[in-house]
Nucleic acid binder design. Structure first.
Lengths: 191, 191
DNA sequence: GTCTATACTACGATAGAC
DNA sequence: GTCTATCGTAGTATAGAC
């Protein structure tokens, strides 16, 4: 891997683990096996490097979600698949994490990819739910956009609860609870 | 207010705004209007001060939640009241925020009050839902513990979405979506 | 109790040699 | 492109005077 590439990847890992304030240029260089001068040759500084890292993580996250949304099954099944996807729950969400970083949230440029990711996620979920209603799988009374936001929030909140408890159990409960609530709104296929 | 008191309050504010890594003894002293020597006279250092601050915020949070849970109304109404409580959404949750701080999560002593808060919250919500079932207000098929975790997660995730979007709108959608899902499980009173 | 002085490390970056 | 030197500021604390 090239040096800029290694720097970006190291930054991604560190942002995930320690956030923006907790990530120093020094730490990035060490993890990337690059020197001081090397880093500042390829990037203007910490903010520029962080932006590259955040953008990449955001794209990755959106692609990962897409895999599940475009899978087989009814609307509820696809949402359930998304919520049950294998996740490294205790590590938390590399994107959601950044919302707790005042320096990221305060900087329009750094916040944008984070905002985009959640908008994209919510939008795709809304589409899945709307489609489910159109196919007669799902109660038409359900508000797709609100419900989509609920699903994404359960996921993000599940990470929070899991890290607080140092256990995946609350995450599992939260997601299964949401799936059950959603499943209750499924319609029987009329034949 | 006494000096130790002012130091704790300043630490609470800073932990909320900037997290553990982002909060320096210097900043605490300045906000509290206390000198270097003064702070180290009353507290051994940053971790001890943080512990006092986190404990206080955790207690405050639990008390605030209790107000809603012990209010009037059906189970669903009380949960809805809790979710709709006035909140400074864009500031985020002072407790949930700490789960993104690796130094807090890694330290058993600092993490404990955070874990306690969410356990207490989930436990009380579980009780409210169980009571609702016992009173015939709520579908007995609903799993109270899972659903309680879902509700707390929606709240925490709602903060994340709101901060990402720099808008309270996703928070509102997520909570209203959850309330609607829950309301659909209410039973009509038989008379 | 509070203040000032002092200490050492890390942060975040620039300069200039190679 | 990468390295080393250097820089000024902040982090986190201790020591000792008042």
């Amino acid at each position: 891997m090239s040096t800029p590439e290694r720097l970006i990847e190291s930054t991604r890992e560190l942002l995930w683990e320690r956030g923006y304030v907790g990530t120093s240029p020094r730490a990035i260089q060490q993890r990337a096996g690059a020197g001081q001068g090397s880093m500042y040759h390829h990037f203007k500084g910490k903010p520029e490097l962080a932006l590259a890292a955040i953008r990449r993580s955001a794209e990755e996250r959106q692609a990962l979600a897409e895999e599940r949304f475009s899978g087989p099954g009814t609307a509820v099944q696809r949402v359930a698949d998304y919520l049950r996807r294998e996740r490294d729950v205790l590590r938390g969400c590399p994107i959601g994490r950044l919302t707790q970083d005042p320096d990221v949230v305060a900087d329009q440029t750094l916040r944008q990819p984070v905002a985009d990711t959640f908008e994209h996620l919510t939008g795709r979920l809304t589409a899945v739910l709307t489609e489910g209603q159109a196919l007669g799988q799902l109660d038409p009374e359900l508000d797709p956009a609100d419900t989509a936001a609920t699903v994404v929030a359960v996921l993000q909140g599940g990470y929070v609860l899991a890290r607080a408890a140092d256990s995946v159990e609350p995450f599992r409960r939260a997601t299964e609870g949401a799936i059950a609530l959603l499943a209750a709104r499924e319609l029987r296929p009329r034949r």
